[in-house]
Write a protein that binds this DNA or RNA. Structure first.
Length: 693
DNA sequence: CTCTGTCCTGCCAACCGAC
DNA sequence: GTCGGTTGGCAGGACAGAG
């Protein structure tokens, strides 16, 4: 009988070369399927590698999309961690970084890094030399075992035993959300030559912050749902008390009880500021972030929401600020605005991930006036109350990850749209900016319509050609919002600040506040406004023109508010009543668009205007279109005069007779209403008190 | 509390480009 | 000329800060 020879060969170089190849791919951006954002730096990596080396990532990627943001790790530290993960080496790490490295290693569940403390101290006693391979005099950690670097290197899989020690005290948790902007990333990207940056606009984004340690805030820890714990971690049992639905739900549950600072637009923080705010609460200093401070029980959450809703507290006002303004000035107020946890404005086609796990029924969905600046929220079932908001869409990530979460759900593709029906609100784990959510198609059933892109990359590259990445947000349909349909009514949700709008045009106009795609500079000073109307109103303060005239006493006022206040206080009348108590005169001092609105029977107003700085084109010498207002005044419009842009008209007319202060106020001081004067070929106005007055 | 300034958002007319 | 999308002015409510 012939003996078969069995050969066993071990490629001792394999693991090293494999790791090197993976690292090369990472550095080249090849096959990277995740982007980790740390302090605005973007680190491209491979999910498999990270999840194999880090219990934290292992857990996180069960729910996260293509982009995750860590705010409990410093960028340079994370760079080293990443280098270690891909090389099994820590090379030339600065001494002062070591503590952070160890701490971050604990948080991320990287055993080797977490356990660096002990061997380093031991080594130090011998040589005190290089940091490499654990040479440091960092603080010894008696809780940590001496790691076996060989094992750690050879087997990057998370060691639950070691992680237990490493993560027992502190583990990151997906809690806070921050706004990201790819545009700002871009700036950072240019300065970041070390890490490959691939412009991940389509990435999913999940925002992560550190959990409150038991030592720091025992109360918070007790009530807060803990972070996604590594397999085998002791915390799992605790987690399961709240989120028994597996690892994904651990993260979901952790978010469930997280309360955000719902500070209206201030909730939206440009990346630089976001970063700053995050860094202001590093784990090392033991401070508790705003999010952490708000880690309380659901009861508290609900109470707060209810309170805010009932008190009708409006969001903080977003001041008109020039570009580069610090949005992050903390102007924190409680508000009824709904809590969409997490933002993603970075991608042209981001989706939403719902980290909150909520049992929502359509009965709980209610909408009050959008004027209250209330946004919609999914919350756990609670009785409907006026002003209380129910729908909570928790986080925003891209559609790709979303799809993975929804694979098991029935779907149908119609006309380039994918429709997914979910049985529970808790399953709404992804929404893209183009999504339509039909919140109440049935009891506990939700339809999500997701537009399918033909070639997002091509689309994006095309949009970036012009070198104005800001523009793409406005160019792409739905990129600035998603839609929520409740009872057949469509609400447009700003993807950035989550305000809801009934009118899409209102949202578009509002969105410029975030994007600053257009800027409206004052022609009299240096101020810049995100809305044309704001600028106009501001400029009127420069000119001092008083267009609002009280019909009772003839006094003129600079704006509606002053005028209305006057009518209420002086005349004890309601200016918003059925009978018009004031008139709005055409603007003479600014090149603003004017309505040629012909009289309105309810208004007592006959403002006839051709636009432009010279105001209405009314020619009483050439009567062509007589218009009579309720006040009995007859105005005439010259239809032969071609309508032209205000600027042109202004250029021709203002040169002959520029408007000056006397022109403006001499007439008004006489408390006149308009009448026409076409002497010297120009158009001039006087105020004429209506006969009825 | 009042006044003033500012913000917000639904509404709608004017504008503008495509066809 | 029509149509659809965009722009921006207006109304009126609301809030914040000063006095």
């Amino acid at each position: 009988m012939e003996t078969k020879k069995v050969i066993t060969a071990t490629d001792t170089q394999y693991s090293g070369s494999l790791l090197k190849a993976l690292n090369d791919q990472r550095l080249q951006g090849l096959y990277c399927d995740v982007t980790v954002i740390v302090e605005e730096r973007k680190f491209r990596a491979h999910r498999n590698i990270l999840s194999a080396c880090s219990t934290y990532f292992h857990q996180l990627f069960s729910v996260a999309g293509q982009v995750v943001e860590l705010n409990f790790v410093k960028a340079d530290v994370f760079a080293e961690i990443l280098n270690y993960i891909y090389s099994a080496k820590i090379v030339r790490v600065k001494y002062d970084m070591l503590e952070e490295l160890i701490k971050s290693g604990k948080l991320l569940g990287v055993p080797f890094l977490a356990d660096l403390g002990i061997p380093l101290s031991q080594v130090k006693s011998i040589s005190g030399s290089s940091v490499k391979e654990g040479t440091t005099d960092g603080p010894p950690n008696p809780d940590q075992k001496v790691p076996d670097p060989q094992n750690t290197t050879a087997d990057p899989s998370p060691s639950t035993d070691k992680n237990k020690a490493a993560t027992e005290d502190e583990m990151p948790v997906i809690t806070e959300s921050f706004t990201l902007s790819t545009d700002d990333y871009k700036d950072k990207k240019e300065s970041d030559s070390k890490e490959k940056d691939a412009g991940e606009d389509d990435d999913d984004v999940i925002f992560c912050s550190e959990i409150v340690s038991s030592k720091q805030a025992p109360t918070e820890k007790k009530e807060a749902v803990q972070c996604p714990a590594p397999p085998g971690n002791d915390q799992v049992s605790e987690l399961k008390k709240v989120a028994p639905s597996g690892p994904a739900h651990n993260a979901l549950a952790s978010n469930q009880q997280t309360i955000k600072n719902t500070t209206s637009s201030q909730k939206l923080t440009p990346p630089a500021n976001t970063n700053a705010s995050q860094n202001q609460n590093p784990p090392a200093n033991g401070s508790i972030s705003s999010a952490q401070k708000q880690l309380t029980s659901n009861t508290v959450v609900q109470n707060q929401l209810s309170h805010n809703a009932s008190s009708g507290t409006a969001p903080s006002q977003q001041k008109v600020l020039p570009p580069l303004v610090n949005y992050n000035s903390p102007k924190i107020q409680p508000k009824t605005e709904v809590i969409f946890q997490g933002n993603c404005i970075s991608n042209p086609s981001p989706s939403v991930i719902t980290l909150g796990q909520h049992s929502v029924t359509q009965k709980n969905i209610s909408f009050d006036g959008v004027q209250k600046k209330q946004v919609l929220t999914f919350t756990q079932g609670s009785p409907s109350k006026p002003g209380e908001f129910k729908i909570k869409i928790a986080d925003v990530v891209s559609g790709s990850s979303k799809e993975s979460h929804l694979d098991s759900e029935p779907r149908r593709i119609i006309d380039g749209k994918k429709i997914i029906t979910l049985d529970r609100a808790s399953e709404i784990e992804g929404l893209s900016t183009g999504c339509k959510v039909y919140a109440n198609i049935g009891e506990d059933t939700y339809d999500i319509v997701i537009p399918i892109k033909e070639d997002p990359e091509e689309e994006e590259s095309k949009l970036e050609i012009d070198g104005f990445p800001n523009r793409k947000r406005m160019k792409l349909k739905h990129d600035d919002h998603y839609e929520l349909i409740v009872d057949g009514r469509v609400y447009y949700i700003c993807i950035v600040c989550k305000r809801s709008y009934v009118c899409l045009t209102s949202l578009r106009r509002h969105f410029n506040v975030h994007s600053w795609e257009k800027k409206y500079p004052c022609r009299y000073c240096e101020r810049v406004f995100p809305l044309a109307e704001y600028r106009t109103k501001h400029e009127i303060h420069h000119t001092g023109e008083r267009r609002y005239q009280c019909l009772t006493c003839g006094n003129s006022f600079i704006n509606y508010q002053v005028m209305a206040s006057h009518i209420r206080s002086v005349h004890s009348l309601d200016p918003s009543g059925d009978s018009k108590l004031y008139r709005l005169n055409p603007c003479k001092t600014l090149q603003i668009r004017q309505y040629a609105y012909i009289t309105d029977s309810a208004n007592n107003v006959a403002v006839i205007n051709d636009g432009g700085i010279n105001g209405p084109v009314i020619n009483d010498g050439r009567i062509n279109v007589p218009v009579i207002n309720d006040g009995g005044i007859v105005y005439n419009i010259d239809p032969d005069k071609p309508r032209q842009p205000a600027s042109e008209e202004n250029a021709s007319n203002s040169s002959s007779k520029p408007v000056n202060w006397d022109d403006i106020f001499l007439q008004q001081s006489n408390q006149n209403m308009f009448k026409c004067n076409t002497s010297d070929g120009g158009t001039e106005f006087e105020f004429v008190i209506p006969e009825t007055y």
